[in-house]
Nucleic acid binder design. Sequence first.
DNA 1: AAGCGCGTTAACGGGATCTTGACGACGTGC
DNA 2: GCACGTCGTCAAGATCCCGTTAACGCGCTT
Lengths: 222, 222
Amino acid sequence: MTRILVVDDDAQITRALRINLKARGYDVDTAPDGAGALHSAAHTHPDLVVLDLGLPDMEGAEVIAGLRGWTAVPIIVLSGRADSADKVAALDAGADDYVTKPFGVDELLARIRAVTRRGRPAGEENPVVLIGDREIDLAEHSISGGVRLTPTEWQLLEHLLRHPGKLITQKELLHDVWGPQYQTETNYLRQYMARLRRKLEADPARPRHLLTEPGMGYRFRP
Amino acid sequence: MTRILVVDDDAQITRALRINLKARGYDVDTAPDGAGALHSAAHTHPDLVVLDLGLPDMEGAEVIAGLRGWTAVPIIVLSGRADSADKVAALDAGADDYVTKPFGVDELLARIRAVTRRGRPAGEENPVVLIGDREIDLAEHSISGGVRLTPTEWQLLEHLLRHPGKLITQKELLHDVWGPQYQTETNYLRQYMARLRRKLEADPARPRHLLTEPGMGYRFRP
DNA sequence: AAGCGCGTTAACGGGATCTTGACGACGTGC
DNA sequence: GCACGTCGTCAAGATCCCGTTAACGCGCTT
């Protein structure tokens, strides 16, 4: 079953697309803004993303870049602007197709078929993140060197790796990994950051990539 | 060097595209009609085809079908008609993208980059997968050594074998093999993974290829 | 009717994983 | 120098998850 993530702040459009796509046998998730889109994509790993450009919280190129940082999932951009410059920007940012509104549902469906048709050629390589001499493949959930991670460890690591260099607050990590009611249980973080460092850092006592920002949170340095 | 075949009966357009594409470092061939396009494509094996639909000798769908009969080369269709039905027909015939005239050269170039960006499939793939000393042919649904699998076992095995090395989550497997409402019935997975291992692994208690990732899912290691 | 293959449930023991609490080490501000 | 908060570490117990065994129902063949 092909899973499609529809990103649009216009509830009418998401609803219409959800109905039409479901009727065609696709599995549909929706997100109303860029942050929700990145979050949902990271969580559900869709097979295709339909992305509206007029989002309230982020530029379209930012969303595309946020996805392309770790996945090669096909992206079809929807936009009200037929301006050539916009198309070029979106396509070069990593989008696979660009459809201007108003669009026919038939056309969108055809483009979805066209984009998903070329499946996954065998020769492709997943983007890998490096921590020291270890290669981490987020798509495969695999790490070189025979290292295995538990589910909680993976969730925590993914949140850090998906935003290289960015500081992630403790509240954010606790909320996203453990849930809304754990936002003050910082001992969980200490526990699991220690385990990650033991498994990934060459010298766990002197981390070079999984850094602590005292009083704030943690940060992944590539 | 990327070779592009431009097919259009309007000499002005072919000339303009030839100049623009050459300036961008592409190698350009041109053909004025469908017959010439098929002949040229068979002869030079271009990396991309830009195909106008208003050809004098053949229908656009015929040209696309003629190409798709033997090659998976990306095809970008140009057309003066913005009619939705035309787009659907062309895309479903096998085209990869559809641009309506008049179009901006920038946009076309961006779409060319988008289509050629994904690595091309290149050669045929051997559909035989090895598990230990057993050969598994996914296309023929056959296994060496007199092993037979039930339909459910096949579905499960296929999902794992289609993504070698990748971790497939339990939810994903349950959803795709048994259906959306079985996403939490992990006992099915335990049951059938055990059967697969009994039939395929040399030592079912110590699987070397059908691996468990505790709390996450399963993985096929070639 | 009986036998067989296949899919579906249920239950259990062992082990890995998560949770929880407590203890120093370190740095900061008073 | 001292109190305080934050962080890293350790060591339990509780909990969840996995592999396994066993049984049942259904459709088909014998």
